[in-house]
Amino acid sequence: MLFIIEDTINGILMGSIYGLAALGLTVIFGVLKVINFAHGSLLMVGMYVAYWAVLLTGMHPYLSLVVVVPVMFVFGYLLQDILIKPIFKSEKEVREPITVIIVTTGVWYILDNLALLIFGPQYRNIQDNPLRGKMLEIGDMMVSVPKLWGFFTALATALVIYLFLRKTRMGRAVRATSLDRDAASLQGINQYRIYNIAFGMGTAVAGVAGVTLVPFYNVFPTVGVLFDIKCFIIVVLGGLGSIGGALLGGMIIGVIESVGPQFMTATWTEAIVYALFLAFLFLKPSGLFGVKYDW
């Protein structure tokens, strides 16, 4: 019995990191209304930035946030401003700009291959960091310390984004744009600037997720692919554009992944995740939280 509780706890912790990665995707989707297929690659970039920051300076992995967050924000902001915005402008009247999706897919391939070119295919990890391999003993249970840090970081990030959206002038403009673009324009809000900011935020959040992974996870050029599909599933589970939904959806996936193998082979747990995804698509496409884009 105890091992199930232990797996559940560790599943929730790992799942919250999935949720954190998905949170970035959901912020971008909530505003731009397109799925960013490069999201996993952005997470990968975030992991490399964190990895090098830690390796070169010897700083605590979490201290690398002060580098990763601004770097990734600017990276996402410029990516949207230079690559995606022109397409948005030329397809202003199109409801679901499929070319934007194609471009984000292109960005995915380019980033993954650039990483391969620059850093090579090897798996990298930071051997001597204060979090690596640490376990917290609670009675007879073992809880992963780096994942626990990830968990609290996910909660804190969600809270910061929530407060930003609720309490600041720019945050309200982001929400308004996500609810009605033209009406937002009529309030004097520069839509394209808001898209840039949302993309920058989503990218920065992917970077934060990267930082939480670096202490215990390998960094390699295609690491993002592992998270890409999970993020899509989580975002659908939790409701597109919902902050709480992303975290909760992530935790559900995390628990299925960690508890499932006690009862079945790992391929089956994956099948369950996909089945859940399809069931939601058919039965409740608005996700767990129901309301459309409620921030």
């Binding site: 308004a176 609810l179 009406a183 459309k292 409620d294």
Partner: peptide, 9 residues
């Protein structure tokens, strides 16, 4: 026309 309020705000 049609108010176009931000419905969930």
């Amino acid at each position: 026309e049609g108010r176009r309020l931000f419905s969930l705000m």
